[in-house]
Each structure stands twice: as structure tokens, then as C-alpha cells.
Amino acid sequence: MRGITNPGDLFGRLKEAWSLESSGSWSAENPAKGQCSVTALVVQDAFGGEILKTYTPGGTHFYNLVDGIKWDMTISQFDRPIPFADLSSSREEAMADTSPAQYEALKARLSL
């Protein structure tokens, strides 16, 4: 991934790349909202690892486990702590929570 060598670099780029094209729930006030599944997919593209999930009052929440470290790039969408069940998930399950168009839009905005 061009210019992205660590999670901090990716997080900075994600904050700028999230949009209505990558999640219909996006807003300027809460840019991470609804971006969890599409973000988990691009994190896995960039760094490998596993996609995990947990259940929240708003539905299923996806995040990553890379080299034994939990990465949740969209945690800021929540206004209170959430439980992390660390349930195994898959690309197919995360993709079912987004769309190919949203995934391609985020990849394009990240220049992947």
C-alpha cells in the first residue's frame, strides 16, 4: 500500500477517505459510522491478519487482529464502550455487510 507502513499511517488516510460512497451512514460529525466492515476488508488487504466481529446494540461490528494485536479503526463511531467478543469472521461476512461498490470506493480513495 503506497505510503502506508503502519496502522497510524492507515488510520490517518482512512479518516480522509471515508465518505458517503463507502458507507451510507457517513456524516462529517461521525465519519467512522457504518465504515467497520469495509474498513476491516481494506485493513486485511494492507496488513493481513484476521477479521473479527462482535455484537453491539446497533448490529454486528467488524475489526481486525493483526500479528496478535486488535485493530479497530472505526471505534470512534461509538459514543460509549462496546464489548469485544473477538468472534472469528471472514471476508465474505464483512463483504455481506457492505457492498462491492463501497469497498471499491474506499480502495480508490486510499489509492490501493
Rank of each mutant, 00 (worst) to 15 (best):
L14K: 02
I4A: 02
S88D: 15
P57T: 05
V38C: 09
T5R: 11
Q35N: 03
A96S: 11
C36F: 02
G8E: 15
W18I: 07
H61Y: 08
K70R: 15
T56W: 00
D9Y: 00
P7Q: 08
I51V: 15
S27P: 01
T39W: 06
D72C: 00
E92M: 12
L10N: 00
L20I: 10
E21P: 05
K53N: 11
V43Y: 02
L87V: 12
A40W: 01
E92A: 15
I4G: 02
L20Y: 11
M73G: 06
R13G: 05
E92R: 13
I51N: 11
S19M: 00
H61N: 10
T56E: 01
K70G: 11
E16G: 02
G48S: 06
W26V: 07
D67M: 11
G58H: 15
T5L: 10
N30H: 05
C36R: 01
T56D: 01
L41Q: 09
E92P: 13
F62S: 11
G34R: 07
A94Q: 06
E93F: 12
N64F: 05
A17R: 01
L106A: 10
F11P: 06
L110F: 02
I75P: 00
Y63H: 04
E93L: 15
Q44Y: 09
R109S: 09
R2P: 08
Y103S: 09
P57I: 03
G3I: 04
P81C: 08
F11S: 14
W26I: 07
F11A: 15
A94K: 06
F78G: 02
R91W: 10
T60N: 04
S111T: 00
E29N: 09
M73Y: 10
D79G: 10
D67Y: 07
L41D: 07
L65Q: 14
L10E: 01
L110S: 04
E92N: 14
R91C: 14
F78C: 05
I51M: 13
G24D: 14
Q35L: 05
L65A: 15
I4M: 02
T56H: 00
E93S: 12
L110Y: 03
T5Y: 10
F62G: 10
L20Q: 07
G58F: 13
L65K: 15
N64K: 07
D67V: 08
K107A: 07
G24T: 09
K53R: 14
P100T: 12
R109F: 02
P7V: 02
D9E: 10
F78I: 03
W18T: 03
A108T: 09
D79S: 13
E50I: 06
A46R: 02
T60P: 06
I69Q: 13
A101G: 06
S37L: 06
T5D: 08
G59Y: 00
R80F: 12
R91K: 11
T56A: 03
D72W: 00
D97M: 11
F11T: 14
A32P: 01
G49F: 02
F84A: 09
L41G: 08
A85V: 09
P83I: 09
A101P: 03
Y55T: 13
R80K: 13
Q44S: 13
T98H: 11
G49M: 04
Y55H: 14
K33C: 11
P7H: 04
G68Q: 01
L110N: 05
I4V: 14
V38W: 06
P7D: 01
S111Y: 00
